[in-house]
């Protein structure tokens, strides 16, 4: 029964939240009653778990939308170039911050990093919208995303090359992704944007499910295909942009989760598919954080290493299992 699968994954999500909050990296007694543990829980552990859930949910939702829109199981926020745009902008702020006087005042404030990430993502999105206006929503747009990613990457390399070693390290660490940098206002902003984006994508799911028939046929069924496609791009940009801004470019979740969800939850009801995606996305992000940071495993890994190590094999498995 499909409905019970959602329940199972929501229960799993809750279990992972408890594990992540009370056990990772070390055990904290939930009813310890000392100020020290309380502070750690409220200032570090709970924001971290909430951030992971938001990131997993937002990236999985945007991956699902892009894969359905482009009818391509490899599409994801990464492929559209959104992440690389954010990355370059943050690179300029972190690395350029020390040498460019104008940016000096902004240097290494989390506000400026987040703002730069969001601006970068949004800028690439605007170019993508311009391209889609001319060429429609075909593979051209994906090709465009990949090429933009390469160009941004080249600029990135150039900036890295010119950077001071300390700045370079700081930027490299940002690039590895983290769920630990959102506290206070930034957590609020992120949760708010994620909820808004998820509600928006929920609304888009019904027309998107008709678009499996192709844009032309969907149009004749009364779907405003152009408006829906445009909204999907904007909603994706919002979700992926805000996550990249606060957590860095998180790889694999956006591409892997929708494929797993589709295989486990075979349905034409895209609204419940979205909820399932969000649950799995949250689970995967939490799991990555737990595996990467739990002292039981005796190693500490940045989030992008774990997403690739867990997400990579999953994507491979799906590709190999797909009917040719």
């Amino acid at each position: 029964m499909n409905f019970s699968k959602i329940i199972i994954f929501i229960l799993l999500l809750l279990a992972l939240v408890i594990l992540d909050v009370f056990f990772v990296p070390t055990f904290i007694h939930p009813f310890g009653n000392d100020i020290f543990s309380d502070t750690i829980l409220s200032a570090i552990r709970i924001p971290k778990a909430l951030t992971a859930i938001c990131a997993g949910a937002a990236l999985a939702a945007s991956g699902l939308m892009l894969q359905q829109l482009f009818k391509n199981p490899l599409a994801g926020p990464y492929v559209l170039g959104v992440s690389s745009g954010a990355s370059l902008a943050v690179g300029i702020v972190i690395i350029g911050g020390t040498s460019i006087p104008f940016l000096k005042s902004l240097y290494m404030q989390s506000v400026s990093v987040a703002l730069a990430g969001f601006m970068g993502a949004f800028l690439v999105l605007l170019i993508a919208l311009a391209v889609s206006y001319k060429f429609g929503y075909s593979y051209i747009l994906l090709l465009f995303g990949v090429i933009i990613g390469q160009i941004m990457g080249a600029f990135q390399t150039l900036i890295d090359y010119l950077a001071k070693p300390t700045d370079l390290k700081m930027f490299s660490i940002w690039n590895m992704g983290s769920f630990n940098n959102t506290i206070g206002w930034s957590l609020n902003v992120m949760v708010l944007f994620t909820i808004a984006g998820v509600i928006w994508s929920y609304v888009l799911m019904k027309p998107l499910s008709i678009m499996i028939l192709g844009q032309d046929v969907a149009y004749t069924l009364g779907v405003k295909t152009k408006s829906v496609s445009l909204q999907i791009l904007m909603c994706t940009g919002l979700l992926a942009g805000v996550i990249t801004a606060f957590c860095g470019p998180i790889a694999f979740i956006g591409m892997a989760v929708p494929n797993v969800a589709r295989m486990l939850y075979k349905t034409a009801n895209f609204r419940s598919l979205l909820i399932f995606n969000i649950a799995i996305g949250g689970c995967m992000a939490l799991l990555c954080d737990i595996i990467g940071n739990w002292t039981v495993f005796e190693f500490h890994l940045p989030i992008n290493v774990t997403t690739a190590l867990i997400g990579g094999p999953i994507v491979l498995f799906i590709l190999l299992k797909r009917k040719v």
Binding site: I212, G214, D216, V217, T220, M263, A268
Partner: peptide, 19 residues
């Protein structure tokens, strides 16, 4: 118009897990 006219082309639907 969606209640007046329906349309089909021979484009293949590329979706795996729909009944």
């Amino acid at each position: 118009r969606a209640l007046l006219m329906s349309f089909i082309n021979s484009k293949k639907i590329e979706e795996d897990y729909i009944r």
